[in-house]
Design a binder for these strands. Structure first.
Length: 231
DNA sequence: CCAGACGTTGTT
DNA sequence: GTCTGG
DNA sequence: CCAGACGTTGTT
DNA sequence: GTCTGG
């Protein structure tokens, strides 16, 4: 679940919305169909300031001897993230915000097919997924920064589509999620819950989005004549 | 102590 | 790197 | 997440 | 069917 998302924000908007500076490199343009292995802007804490840096979606743990593991480490389960050895240290020390405008889920059909849905906050505001990040060393000076998105059970809006959904942080909780002083599970696990259904909306979109190569407005256009509706 | 594993999803 | 299992 | 590939030998 | 790649 949560294997594709959307980020329509410009760099300037991201910096103001998340109160951060741009760390290094050129940020990619707004993006409609972000897939695993792509580089995305991610907000982390360095010392006493927030920074926006680029990382690859799909966690490549420091111990891995193969970068390809990242293709399958795109999510971490909230229910077990404090216990799994691959995540517990990161949960304590390496949390991040992943800015987004929405995400996709594919609903399985009885006939064996699948239909993509676009999901976002009501009205389309910018939000942050709860993420974990790490560094992998390919060579002596070769660092790969990567991240994963935490998932939780589906809320009422999502459950007709899928049984899992990404953790979306309430804006007031973003500072807590990033606070390096907070390392105890009791401080931060309560944030990893489904976002309220009433504050979200979703609609069916075209299978055009099935290919991550397809970009643009078409990726979030309702498949039924312009009206958003429940699945 | 060392050796060995370390993840999610969906589908069956 | 860090945790679990033997 | 979905799309797309999925192989070896020998010769150049 | 299953794995890899983006």
């Amino acid at each position: 679940m949560c294997g594709r998302f959307v980020r329509k924000e410009e760099k300037v908007l991201l910096e103001s919305r998340f109160n951060c500076d741009t760390l290094a490199g050129i940020l990619p343009a707004p993006e409609y169909n972000i897939a695993p292995s792509q580089d995305c802007p991610v907000v982390t804490v360095e010392g006493d300031r927030r920074v926006l840096g680029l990382m690859r979606w799909g966690l490549v743990p420091a111990w891995s001897d193969d970068v390809k593991i990242g293709y399958r480490m795109i999510n971490a389960r909230a229910e077990t993230v404090a216990e799994k050895q691959s995540f517990k240290t990161l949960l304590k020390k390496s949390r991040c915000l992943v800015p987004a405008s929405g995400f996709y889920e594919w609903k399985k059909l009885a006939g064996g097919g699948k239909t993509p849905y676009f999901i976002r906050l009501k009205g389309g505001g910018t939000f942050a997924f709860a993420g974990l990040w790490t560094v992998w060393h390919a060579g002596k000076d070769d660092e790969l920064h990567s991240f994963t998105i935490i998932t939780t059970s589906a809320n009422e809006l999502m459950s007709p589509i899928h049984d899992r959904m990404p953790v979306i942080l309430h804006e007031k909780d973003e500072a807590r999620w990033l606070d390096p002083e907070l390392g105890k599970p009791g401080d931060i696990l309560p944030l990893l819950v489904p976002y309220p259904s009433g504050d979200m909306e979703c609609w069916e979109v075209s299978p055009y989005v099935n290919s991550y190569k397809n970009k643009g407005e078409e990726c979030i256009k309702p498949v039924t004549s312009g009206h958003s509706r429940r699945p």
